[in-house]
Design a protein around this nucleic acid. Structure first.
Lengths: 151, 151
DNA sequence: TTGAGTGCAAAGGATTTGCAGGTTC
DNA sequence: GAACCTGCAAATCCTTTGCACTCAA
């Protein structure tokens, strides 16, 4: 994989955030003139295949990306390929992924995410699918994504 | 809210599954002639507002619905309205939602999901966004969705 | 009767693809 | 110089909306 200006800029933009960021946001942060939005999509996709970044979802279904840094440490296994879900009865997070590996799964990762309406938004109408909130920017330093990846 | 043929059929279809199902799949299962796909979208959305069903996402970003039955029992709080994420330092799942309530969040829910490539798909190419897997049907009885909702 | 529900058609928005031209190695 | 990257434009796909009509309460 080649090192190009857009790719470096994307990584830099991701480094400035400490949590999942939307693609649009990354594009803005790195400066929209650096490259086309399409390129950001393609690069992030490539990065994901390399295990450099991980993808998660916002409550409206649009996706977020973040750098894979530490190895964070649960109830539902979904096959990335066929989409089938498989029951996971063992509860504690520890040893969870090891158990899945023993079942024959690879590229295991998991996400744990909470949703709710924050104090400031208490009185406003609910969000619908695809409806992107005014400022969907994760607040830096205040997010923890416990998704992890294992070969 | 009125009881109509499509709504009954949707609930019945959901009852036949023990895990998250895609909207398309629900439509198929209940028989495409019962109502339009759009109606399924609208009904599920209404059910969700009533807390009857919960929504989650597939690894390609498309959404899944499932009946809210039991009350299942952490790291990332995302506002459903503005999309901002907020750090959650307290780790154990127990008491997590209570703590968030104390912070002023409402309509709290969370999802815990694992992703991986299942033994059967080991040798095939990776899935991309929006790319719906051949058979994305959750295997009944083998899924556990630990998302919960609190007012 | 009458407002909530529905169908059909079309709009919206995020993500992907095709192809020609550029750039890194 | 070849293979990989990009830009631009257009296609896809899922989800939402508008509007007139139907039906449960």
């Amino acid at each position: 994989m080649r090192i190009t200006k857009p790719r470096v800029a994307i990584i830099e933009a991701l480094l400035r955030h400490h949590g999942p960021v939307s693609i649009e946001r990354i594009h803005q942060d790195m400066g929209t003139r650096v490259c086309d939005l399409v390129t950001v999509y393609r690069c992030l996709s490539a990065f994901e295949n390399l295990g450099l970044v991980r993808r998660s979802y916002q409550h409206n279904g649009t996706c977020l990306y973040e750098l894979v840094l530490g190895t964070p440490s649960h109830y539902h296994i979904v096959c990335k390929h066929c989409g089938k879900t498989d029951r996971v009865d063992y509860f504690p997070v520890e040893g969870m992924e090891r158990m899945l590996q023993e079942r024959g799964y690879t590229q295991i990762s998991h996400i744990v995410e909470f949703f709710g309406v924050c104090p400031t938004c208490q009185k406003v109408a609910p969000v619908r699918h695809r409806e992107v909130p005014a400022e969907a920017t994760p607040v830096r330093g205040t997010s923890v994504n416990i998704e992890s990846s294992t070969l």
